[in-house]
Design a protein around this nucleic acid. Structure first.
Lengths: 350, 350
DNA sequence: ATTACGAATGATAGCGCTGTCATTCAAGCG
DNA sequence: CGCTTGAATGACAGCGCTATCATTCGTAAT
């Protein structure tokens, strides 16, 4: 120390802070008397720094309330430690478990989740993905496997691991963690037929690839085991349309009084149909057998408890996370497709 | 090993790209024959660039599939265009509307949302906030107003607009968009008493500040209008505990057969209690009046339709977003507290 | 001693973008 | 005709961090 008079560079001012006034790596380094890079190491790879230095740095960090700038770190390291997920809508209870599973997995390695919703629209998805990719996420999780060509091109160029979930797309972009919506609804329809139902209807209130696949499963099963039953379907005409499950159900019943079972495209619809029955004094399952899809918490609480298809919502999230992380670590180098299956849960409504 | 071999600089390779191989501002600039800064302007403030240049740049962007690096932009501009929200849990239907409202508002200005959940724990919150602040969000939205001192210090240092929602904290950190949980439950209890109920119980399955405030509102109302009714409460002992609403209800009824009404701390609990009644053949509302809290979609679908307190879930999200953006634009410079109120929705269960 | 080597630390050069001037040039004005 | 003005563009210097290579130094192996 040559005590070179007053500060030669910028005026140390009151707190030796420049720019935004936020404490940064340099502030810590100066305070401790080491180089910034050593501070960086002390925080990221403590093993490479001597215990004494590490302790001093730790202390300075506490004192100054230093919060590392992950934005700068991302830029420098080209690793953002962020994974993005795009959902049809965030308001849906259906995807909550999936998000939770994904978060739980990512948290283990300090990754953060950034969420976007495309409102069930492939067009919105395209622009959303473009913006999200701008954040340079280390991975991308997409609900669904239907994407516009520009989207596919964008993703191909991005060089980011992609996992599509909740379906088993014909032409996966990369990895997949899903189940067969077709098979699941086929199985449920089959179950209803086995229990002796003679006229099974199908209700969806939203038109999307998964609902359509379920509808196809329903139709296929009727064809093969329906003893001449004709498909009886309530499905909105376009992606934008949203119908009221209760009304659709009532209309269906009035038009076809011989209906004795309803396959609902998801649990929420099934709840509505059960409530409608109660309102109309139509005993369930005596007059109508009702089946759901997803096995939400409330399905088993409902009275009568809902017979439904359990799908691996949480696990899809978790496994998608695992795949992304595996890709990033180099542990996985090839696209993987995981079929997590489903399970018919027999309760009281069918 | 002195084998310095070849491979010293970066080989220009096939596509003149260095590093990650991603197209960047420079690539566009070179292709068009302008400086990078002009490209930046063409994309961010098109008005400052001549139409001709703008068109050429636009074209190059399309051709090369350029996606601006928002991470670098954030670092350089010190504006991340990201807002973070911390929820007790993401699995809860209760907060879905709030997220949606916030997203809808932020989307208008191209902001992204990053979500964290603290699992109803103030300790987790502290570390979560620290990590999230590392992403340098331009704003922070917190559900709830209970925070540890270190958290408060962190937030004070961060210099980021904060909005607490879903409550009206005594000592707000910054702005607030909420409603009075106390008043709301007071009002609902009062409503039940007015309809002639003689013994009103309160059920919560989760211990958190909002549930406690509601409980206080219930107690206060009983004190003032309960004609000698003693509070009758089911509330978990600690934050970690989670109880089963159906079981708590049954236990309560067995211990106090004179109960004729149940104030539930949220709609989900109320649904469960209604189902329990149906299972037990206890007519609702004749035997038990039941009230919910939140007014989820399903509340009005339920049979019998749920009497509940409507709270401004979506609006809290939207207004929180508006406040954050207002702060960022400088349109708002002082902390604001917004009480969005509530509404008793009378339906069939009470 | 000589060499080798691992542990600890540092210097340098960016990551891809934007803030902040500075520059150019044509049109407008007294 | 010189001067101002504004539109269009550019140069430069970082933002705060990390990748990469280089250096120092004490200790063990030869």
């Amino acid at each position: 120390m040559t005590t070179s008079k007053p500060a030669n560079p910028a005026k140390p001012d009151s707190k030796a802070k420049r720019s935004a006034g936020r404490v940064n790596l340099n502030d810590i380094a100066q305070r401790v008397g080491v180089s910034p890079i050593t501070v960086s190491r002390a925080l990221r790879t403590p093993d490479l720094v001597s215990p004494a230095t590490r302790a001093k740095i730790q202390m300075a960090v506490e004192e100054l309330g230093y919060v590392p700038d992950l934005v700068a770190a991302s830029l420098a390291s080209r690793r953002s430690k962020v994974v993005a997920i795009i959902l049809p809508t965030i308001t849906q209870a259906l995807f909550a478990d999936t998000i939770q599973g994904l978060m739980d997995m990512l948290r283990l390695e300090g990754y953060q989740l950034i969420v976007g919703d495309n409102g069930y629209s492939s067009e919105i998805e395209a622009s959303l993905i473009s913006t999200l990719l701008g954040r340079r996420p280390d991975g991308l999780v997409l609900v669904g496997g239907e994407h516009l060509p520009p989207t596919r091109r964008l993703l191909a160029n991005a060089g980011v691991p992609v996992v599509e979930i909740w379906e088993l797309p014909e032409k996966p972009i990369d990895s997949v963690v899903g189940f067969s919506n077709f098979n699941a609804m086929y199985a449920m329809t089959h179950y209803l037929l086995k229990t002796g139902r003679r006229r099974v209807a199908f209700i969806s209130t939203r038109r999307n690839p998964r609902a359509l696949a379920r509808q196809e499963g329903y139709i296929a099963c009727l064809r093969e085991h329906g003893q001449g039953q004709l498909p009886l379907i309530a499905m909105p005409a376009t992606v934008r349309d949203l119908t009221d499950p209760e009304m659709e159900f009532i209309k269906l019943v009035h038009a076809h009084p011989d209906i004795d079972a309803v396959c609902c495209a998801d649990d929420i619809i099934a709840f509505n149909v059960v409530f409608a029955c109660q309102r109309q004094r139509w005993p369930v399952p005596d007059r109508f057998a009702i089946s759901g899809f997803c096995d939400l918490d409330m399905a088993r609480k409902l009275y009568p408890a809902l017979t439904t298809v359990r799908i691996p919502g949480y696990d899809m999230g978790r496994e998608a996370g695992r795949l992304v992380l595996g890709r990033l670590h180099g542990a996985i180098s090839e696209p993987v497709t995981l079929d997590l299956g489903f399970e018919i849960i027999q309760r009281e409504t069918a």
